[in-house]
């Protein structure tokens, strides 16, 4: 798979956390992550038109990407509490990529999420939202150049 490509440290740690536990605990981990997704800052709260919708997620997910002058990436996500799986996916992105450099984010393999071993726990179909999330984040980082 993607073992040869180095993931940013926090994302790599998450992959390790997921792959070290059984299927049931992976769901528990995802649930905890979903609860840790930070709330939107004021400039985005209630301003979904300023965010991009990830249509590939089963429940509406909105994201915003900012690249600061130091080329550091900041990520913002909005998904309703009744969509914990989508929130969990967003939280993986946030925990693993927020604060990384633009180049690091662009270098994350598109299929990194396979290594989380979530296919069995949530079904491969549900996982595709995560791939779409990463693709959209990368697009926004590219266009912020």
């Amino acid at each position: 798979m993607t073992a040869s490509v180095e993931l940013p440290p926090k994302l790599s740690e998450l992959v390790d956390d997921f792959s070290e536990v059984g299927v049931k605990d992976r769901l528990q981990l995802l649930l905890e992550l979903s609860q840790e997704l930070p709330a939107l800052p004021e400039r985005y709260a209630g301003h979904r038109d300023a965010m991009e919708q990830v249509h590939e997620c089963q429940t509406p997910l909105f994201l915003a990407v900012e690249v600061d002058p130091e080329r550091t990436v900041h990520l913002f996500f909005d998904a309703p509490p009744e969509a914990p799986t989508t929130r969990g996916f967003a939280s993986i992105m946030y925990t693993g990529l927020d604060g990384e450099s633009a180049d690091t984010v662009l270098g994350v393999p598109n299929d990194f999420y396979l290594a989380l071993g979530l296919g069995e726990a949530v079904s491969p179909l549900r996982l595709r939202g995560m791939a779409a999330m990463l693709a959209r984040i990368k697009n926004q980082v590219r266009s912020a150049r």
Partner: peptide, 9 residues
Amino acid sequence: DEDVLLYDT
């Protein structure tokens, strides 16, 4: 549910 984690919340 549609969402596999919703029950657990």
